[in-house]
Amino acid sequence: YPVGKVDGDGHLESSDPIKGKVEKPKSVITYVYKEVKEEPSKPKGEVIITYVDENGKELQKPRQDTPNSPYDTPYDTTEEGEKPNTIKTPDGKTYKIVPKGDYPVGKVDGDGHLESSDPIKGKVEKPKSVITYVYKEVKEEPSTPTGNVYVHYVDEFGNTLKNSVTDEYAQPVGKYYDTVIDNRPNTIITPDGKIYVLVPAGNYAVGKVDVDGHLTTTDSATGQVIKGDKNVTYVYKLVKTPTPNVPVDPTPEKPVDPTPNKPVDPTPNKPVDPTPEKPVDPTPNKPVDPTPVNPTPEQPAKPAPALEQLPNTGEAQSVATGVLGAIAGLAGLATLGRRKKEDEK
């Protein structure tokens, strides 16, 4: 350098060493510098989107599309969410982006962009770029009003018998309804088993009832849906109460025959034999001896004397005949002996 040679430490070599020992009254070490001229920084800018109505009134807060960025930074304000087709304001109004045309706020192109504002796409080239979209209020047509029809079921005293039913729900005003055909049962059976039927026309504790069983103080049984609710009520009366549970008699009104499978006497009004279990005479139509018979103990049969088996010579018959004759003779002698003794007496 003009000042002299400088080493890698920026040290002017002609000056004293940067390290060493003190060896003279004054040592001078010199470092050499040069001026650095700083380059100027690039300018920066931001991009803002605004939303106004046809008269230039702001509809919602501005949106920052591009934060503070160097010039030449590209931007695009047509990206999703940056240019909505519809805006709803806090007061409940709805605005829609305007078509191309001239408006009080100025000329608008086919993108709904106010041409007097900055381009909707481009590069940052100034401190603040503002892109404006224009909207107009949309008058929403009121929706068709609707209504409901509900049907209720009570007894003569107004007590509810079953859950209410919906005959019509969210139907257009003016639609015809008929609860008589659709939701009017003739009979209702409650969970406890009671049976109710529609009452005839007349005055009841709950009020006046017409021929349809309809409580006339409620909405009409047939008609047209109105905006809101209609409530139709039908009235019923109790006709049957369930019999409480009673123990079952196995043979009501008839005593139980203790003898199972007892034969039935086919002869009606036949006198009953007072003698139980009398033996049946096996001989039909035989006169019954009225004199009771004294039972004689049965004596065991006396075995007959065994006859000696003779050879089959043809004499067996004669031997048997002789034996029988001898027995008969002995019986005769015994009888004569008894008579003689009696005569002697």
Rank of each mutant, 00 (worst) to 15 (best):
V225L: 05
G112H: 05
K26A: 10
E342K: 15
P25E: 14
T313E: 11
D343F: 09
P292Y: 08
V199M: 02
P17V: 06
A301L: 14
Q224L: 07
Q171R: 12
P258T: 02
G314R: 03
K42I: 07
D167T: 01
V280P: 07
I18R: 15
I131E: 06
P242Y: 02
T217F: 01
P255F: 03
K262G: 00
E46F: 01
P258D: 08
K208T: 14
A205S: 14
V256P: 00
P271I: 05
K123E: 14
Y71R: 01
P40H: 00
P271T: 09
V209K: 08
V130I: 15
V149N: 12
A301D: 09
L310Y: 03
T160D: 08
Q171W: 01
P200M: 01
P25I: 11
E140D: 07
K44V: 13
Y31M: 09
T259S: 10
K341I: 13
E82I: 05
G92V: 09
V6Q: 11
P271F: 03
Y196P: 00
Y234R: 05
G92Q: 08
I188H: 05
K237C: 04
L59A: 05
E38K: 14
T50R: 13
V264T: 06
D219A: 12
V239A: 03
V248G: 02
D72C: 00
K270N: 07
P276T: 12
G10D: 05
G228V: 04
G101C: 09
Y169G: 01
H11F: 02
N85V: 12
P305R: 10
P104F: 06
V199S: 01
N68E: 15
P191D: 06
P90K: 13
G332A: 15
F157P: 00
G110H: 09
K270C: 07
P67H: 02
T50V: 05
Q64I: 14
P297I: 03
Q60R: 15
V6S: 11
T335N: 11
T291K: 14
L59S: 09
G110P: 00
H11R: 13
P62W: 02
K93Y: 08
H214M: 06
T190I: 06
D167C: 01
Y236P: 08
N245P: 11
P303N: 09
L307T: 04
E298K: 13
V225R: 06
I131M: 08
E13F: 00
G92I: 09
P145L: 12
S27M: 15
T94D: 03
K340D: 12
K26N: 10
T259R: 07
V154D: 04
Q317L: 07
G45R: 04
V323E: 07
T222L: 02
V22N: 09
V232A: 04
K61E: 14
P252W: 08
V151N: 08
V134S: 02
I48W: 11
E156K: 15
P276K: 09
P303A: 13
S41K: 15
V149L: 12
K340G: 14
V288E: 10
E13I: 15
T335I: 13
R338A: 15
Y103E: 04
A328H: 00
S129V: 05
V149G: 13
N159D: 04
D53K: 10
I48T: 13
G56P: 04
E125K: 15
K57W: 00
L330K: 03
G213C: 06
Q317W: 07
N203Q: 12
G81K: 02
